[in-house]
Design a protein around this nucleic acid. Structure first.
Lengths: 232, 232
DNA sequence: GTCTATAGCTGGATAGAC
DNA sequence: GTCTATCCAGCTATAGAC
């Protein structure tokens, strides 16, 4: 007691309950720390110890709340995926209200790009954006089936919308078009400096307005004018 | 000697030189196994033990020949990067010979895409193509500086060529265009099944002719018609 | 150059007190 | 629900015989 008695009153109160926290708050702390660590280092590049350290919780709590490292990773998507999926579906709904096919096409592209590129630019959500980008591009990550489970359904809806906006295209062209859109988007989302470095600072992925403006315009032109006839 | 004397003659001959191999052959075996393992599991997802097991060499030889796991990874790029870089520079040379800016633009895009997409489709090289795709897209991998060291120089040459083919564009547009190209290409290179799954088998990244045809056509249209005026 | 054996850590997960 | 202590499997890297 000697030491505590010598501290000022404020300090002793702080120390009497060093980690008093609700269970829900603990789960949230762990999830946020996990997002931050996975975003920078990837699934295999992070230990649960690092995550626990950042969250200032004992390691055992991670397994208590999430079962395993895999369970924790998956919990991030369970918590976050609906946000993106719902925004995209809402964007598609707006696209379907357009009567001009050309305007519809632009809105379909925006429905795909805007939720992700905007999310990336918001500090609070940028970590999840990076994890998602990694999960989409990483062959190993695909084995976990997260993308398939959470995002394949809305991907099919996007293809459907493209078909309506570009009724005279072969289905192959629409699929390749979708892959091109997604690749361009994911590459920008995943970036941690190369785009800025190569462009000498002229392109900034964190500026979602400019990134979206350029990508949407170019992808719109790609789909509108890039006709690829059947091979034979 | 007692045990060997009891075996049949064939067996004793086999065991007398169980792994006779030249040093160069050993290095090659290790590099090939490393490519295969890194391609599927990523740098952190593979142990040098797995690589040694696949190559059928003792673990110690990996550190003897390549110094460390990092050294082995880097050695893959030292051996392979020139192939892609040289092909791309050769493609740019062809592009510069075109007098029609429109034809030149198409050849610049092909100079970027064809070496990689073709490599991916060749069984012997497809593993390296996947590693490269991962290295380009993975934030963690970027810390190793391999992309910067091996590929930034040729990236600048591509931007230069784009500037010549599209002389009336702002430099920002060219850079965003390059990022779009690269993202689309890398996404196709990295894929291990999603594209085929989503398209119900209609799009096949292993068919480099078709993949190139679609992507080049669309990206050409994107750059040619996707004009993005300055923001203010 | 090759190989065995092992040093020296760090990883995910858990048992059991509170 | 929380936390400490710990298990033990796996890792990279190397020492030292051949």
């Amino acid at each position: 007691m000697g030491k505590a008695a010598k501290s000022n009153p404020d300090r002793s109160v702080e120390q009497s309950e060093p980690t008093q926290r609700s269970a829900a708050a603990t789960r949230t702390r762990i999830l946020e720390s996990a997002e931050a660590e996975f975003a920078v280092h990837g699934f295999d590049g992070v230990s649960v110890r690092q995550i626990a350290l950042r969250a200032e919780v004992p390691v055992a709590l991670i397994n208590y709340h999430f079962g395993s490292k895999d369970g924790l990773y998956r919990a991030i998507f369970v918590a976050r995926a609906p946000m993106i999926v719902d925004e995209r579906i809402a964007g598609l709904r707006l696209a379907y209200m357009e009567t001009d096919p050309d305007r519809m096409l632009e809105l379909v592209i925006k429905a795909v790009l805007v939720p992700n590129l905007h999310m990336r630019s918001v500090e609070k959500n940028s970590n999840y954006a990076r994890i998602l980008a990694r999960e989409v591009a990483d062959p190993k990550a695909m084995e976990r089936g997260i993308i398939q489970e959470f995002f394949d359904p809305v991907a099919h809806k996007v293809i459907e919308a493209l078909k309506k906006a570009l009724p005279d295209r072969r289905i192959e062209e629409l699929h390749w078009g979708y892959q091109m859109m997604l690749g361009a988007m994911v590459y920008v989302m995943a970036d941690i400096g190369r785009i800025r470095r190569l462009s000498d600072g002229r392109c900034d992925p964190d500026n979602d307005i400019e990134a979206t403006r350029h990508l949407v315009t170019m992808l719109h032109a790609a789909l509108k004018y890039g006709r690829v006839p059947a091979a034979d």
